[in-house]
């Protein structure tokens, strides 16, 4: 089995202050390994997004430990956390979060630009070709459909060859056909043994793409199921 790309050990997270303080995560243990696509499912308010934020180094846990590629990320300052994100994590958001004033190609290039990489244009065009948007490299987000925008967001997440792709409801704003296409791309990416994909979702239509499904409720992992290839085939 591949090494964990990201793993969380006994992660506890309190949010808010004073009377509004609440415990969003209550000792969560979760690993994302290379070569797997994990679905994180649970009802609203169960702690999915908080867990995703902590795994993606957008947030630090109140207690417990998170390791990215084996390196503990506790007590790192915001700049150090940003460096871990740009080196190891690619994000995909439900509302895409593309830059409206930049073309598809420039949106993808941004992920390389923040890493200080050169030869960005060719790499960006190559990745846009991989997600089926070779003909839309010069299009602005408002000229693209929702599915196309999400493909650009995927291209942005994978262009830097991140170890982990963390996706927050990536199909939430898409129709069934576009949702399937997006998940196919992510599943393809997760075949690489050095990379893992974690998808937070409510969408049952994407279950067939998962290698593993983790259920979270009230800040605790309440169940986990490994989906065998045969079952995946039958579900699809």
């Amino acid at each position: 089995m591949s090494e964990p790309v990201i793993d969380a050990v006994d992660v506890v997270k309190f949010l808010g202050r004073g009377a509004g303080r609440l415990q969003a995560l209550k000792g969560v243990n979760l690993s994302l390994r290379g070569g797997e696509l994990v679905l994180l499912m649970g009802p609203s308010g169960s702690g999915k997004t908080t867990l995703l934020s902590i795994l993606g180094c957008l947030m630090t846990p109140t207690s417990g430990m998170v390791r990215v590629r084996g390196r503990p990320v506790a007590n790192l300052d915001p700049e150090a956390l940003a460096k871990i994100r740009r080196d190891h994590v690619g994000f995909i958001f439900q509302s895409y979060h593309l830059f409206p004033t930049l073309t598809a190609e420039d949106n993808v290039r941004l992920a390389l630009d923040v890493r200080g990489e050169r030869s960005q244009s060719k790499a960006a065009r190559d990745v846009l070709g991989m997600v089926g948007l070779a003909h839309k490299t010069k299009a602005f987000p408002h000229e693209l459909s929702g599915g196309e925008q999400q493909r650009v967001a995927i291209a942005r997440a994978i262009v830097g060859k991140a170890s982990a792709i963390l996706a927050d409801e990536p199909t939430g704003a898409l129709d069934a056909q576009n949702g399937q296409a997006i998940m196919t791309l992510l599943a393809e990416f997760a075949k690489d043994q050095s990379r893992g994909v974690l998808v937070v979702t409510h969408d049952p239509r994407i279950l067939p793409f998962a290698n593993r499904i983790v259920h979270i409720e009230d800040g605790c992992i309440v169940g986990e199921e490994v989906v065998r290839e045969a079952k995946r085939m039958s579900m699809s």
């Binding site: 957008l58 700049e79 994100r85 740009r86 994000f91 409206p100 923040v114």
Partner: peptide, 16 residues
């Protein structure tokens, strides 16, 4: 602000 937050989320440094 949302775009700057996105930049930060994808790992840009403060200096960037």
């Amino acid at each position: 602000l949302n775009e700057f937050a996105t930049l930060r989320a994808i790992g840009s440094s403060g200096a960037y």
